[in-house]
Design a binder for these strands. Sequence first.
DNA 1: AGAATTTACTGAACCGGATAAGTGACGCGA
DNA 2: TCGCGTCACTTATCCGGTTCAGTAAATTCT
Lengths: 339, 339
Amino acid sequence: MKRPTIADIARRAGVSKGAVSYALNGQPGVSDATRQRIVAIAQEIGFNPNSAARALSGASARAVGLTLCRPARILSIEPFFMGLISGFEQELAARSYALTLQVVATPQTETEVYRRWWGERRVDGVFVTDLRENDVRIPVLNELQLPAVVIGGPGDTGKLAQLWSDDAGAITEAVGYLMALGHRRIARVGGLPDLLHTQTRTRAFSQVCASLGLSEAITVPSDYTGEEGGRATRRLLINAERPTAIIYDNDVMAVAGLSVAQEMGLSVPGDLSIVAWDDSPLCSLVHPPLTALSRDIAAYGAHAARQLLAAIAGEPVGDVEEGTAHLTPRGSTAPPREN
Amino acid sequence: MKRPTIADIARRAGVSKGAVSYALNGQPGVSDATRQRIVAIAQEIGFNPNSAARALSGASARAVGLTLCRPARILSIEPFFMGLISGFEQELAARSYALTLQVVATPQTETEVYRRWWGERRVDGVFVTDLRENDVRIPVLNELQLPAVVIGGPGDTGKLAQLWSDDAGAITEAVGYLMALGHRRIARVGGLPDLLHTQTRTRAFSQVCASLGLSEAITVPSDYTGEEGGRATRRLLINAERPTAIIYDNDVMAVAGLSVAQEMGLSVPGDLSIVAWDDSPLCSLVHPPLTALSRDIAAYGAHAARQLLAAIAGEPVGDVEEGTAHLTPRGSTAPPREN
DNA sequence: AGAATTTACTGAACCGGATAAGTGACGCGA
DNA sequence: TCGCGTCACTTATCCGGTTCAGTAAATTCT
């Protein structure tokens, strides 16, 4: 089956290729009558502009890229990225932009992928997640002048637009809530320590605990996996002065922590309260359901997509702080048992 | 920053554009000395062929597509798709094919996306998941002659290549194992009933139970979500003659089922044994860890990608049955308690 | 009415590769 | 020494859009 081209439309409408192009792109230069005739023919024969030809003649590729740098076994279980992708799609699909995905092993490889995409003109812009300190990807994107939106800061990203959520506010809310319940020994199992948003959270956690007069505000670093989250929990709980509440940087570790606590004969929330960061169906599934810091990840992704499309269109795009995650109390938090 | 083109290379090497093209594509028509010189220059200036130009001049788009038709809240928690995507990427990245992703609402929309991709020449082929009975996507793909690999059959797909895993064998193993433990009342919480592989499983489950002399082999249909899986479990367990073992069509429902059982005061595995279909880190996270039907989903995806690339290359691609999932016994299964 | 401007187009160049057809130099056999 | 084939290229065309320069007709202005 042959793909219809503008030449086919031009022939049937009895006009030139150029006229068809103007008509279909809403450009001036054709009369309304002709435009309608051309649009009708295009509809009738099911015309879709060849994206390659379009990209080649200077216009955009109408595609954006996303690289994911996490091992498969983490990616598969981490609900965050799929939620983000769904959010991207809401905006992208509406403007028929395609999303090109690549799973890579290291941030270094990501820069190579950016270079290749740029050279191939395959994408008009990219989403950058998991911002790190002195991130190798940032200078490359600035050098290539490839439009980008950085998710997971804030950090130093040169001219690139940024979007982050108010992690400090969220952790303040969580700690405040646990204190109000009566907790005084609160620990945290953190995400990958070299990610900037993990550092932001760690700093905020220390500060808020200090300001509220909580002496020990331990953050145990982890890596978002269930195994590590479980191990970290075990280390915290074998302590003589064990915490009465733990905040986890993602839902997977929180679930693993719950499991470890139960296995050690501790009751949740009687002996230990648990708060998960990022609410996913997973949190409601387990028993007891987990109190979580909820945010609308799809909306977050949609927002990022709007920013990226604006940056591609050449509009000025500033750095934006998305709203604070809010606490959704469930069965995993309660006042600490007197001992 | 300007992207280097073959014209730039040609100028620097003192040859014509054509010669450069031959040299870089390993075509005959240039001497080895010239070829090496050209390749060296291309390397040096970081040349990447413009994918649009390449696609336009008849060659392939070097991209394949995947549409996902599940609501965001299911996608985000379902580990299967991310595992599959990771598998695709292993093969695609090695041959520098891009993966284009689109999340859609209905199978009907998927066909529209296929038509658009085809018209735009955006992809060389597509992955089709979640095959249904009389699937609307199949005739469209056959009509467009868009290469495709169908995952989740077997079913009637015309000329399209298929890949499925031996669900019947897997369920036979699971039921056999539960019987050997002493279970006689085994139920199943199934996936979306209109998916072909769900039907295959349901049929196989009935048959194997019948052949082993188990009278009641109830399958309760569900939709892969935790909520539905939990509800289905509750319905099964309030029964006077409640099952002593339940097989779940995915890990999320199994975790939800575990939670419901515990909430109802039943001990797992004492009062109820649980088997999850598809092993993910999630299964090992909960307490007790879930016995699961494991398969290597990434390998499954990689296999599918190899098939698709072969189909795109015009090689004949047959239907393939991937190996049987094997049972990984964990703490959620045990002999039923005498009553 | 005649000049100036606008409208509604056409024709051709261009994007950056792939590729068929053409060309000159060289080697080789008769 | 002529003719033929092969090699190593060059030249030109094509893919399917976008866009600029040009043009004839219609409209507006004076």
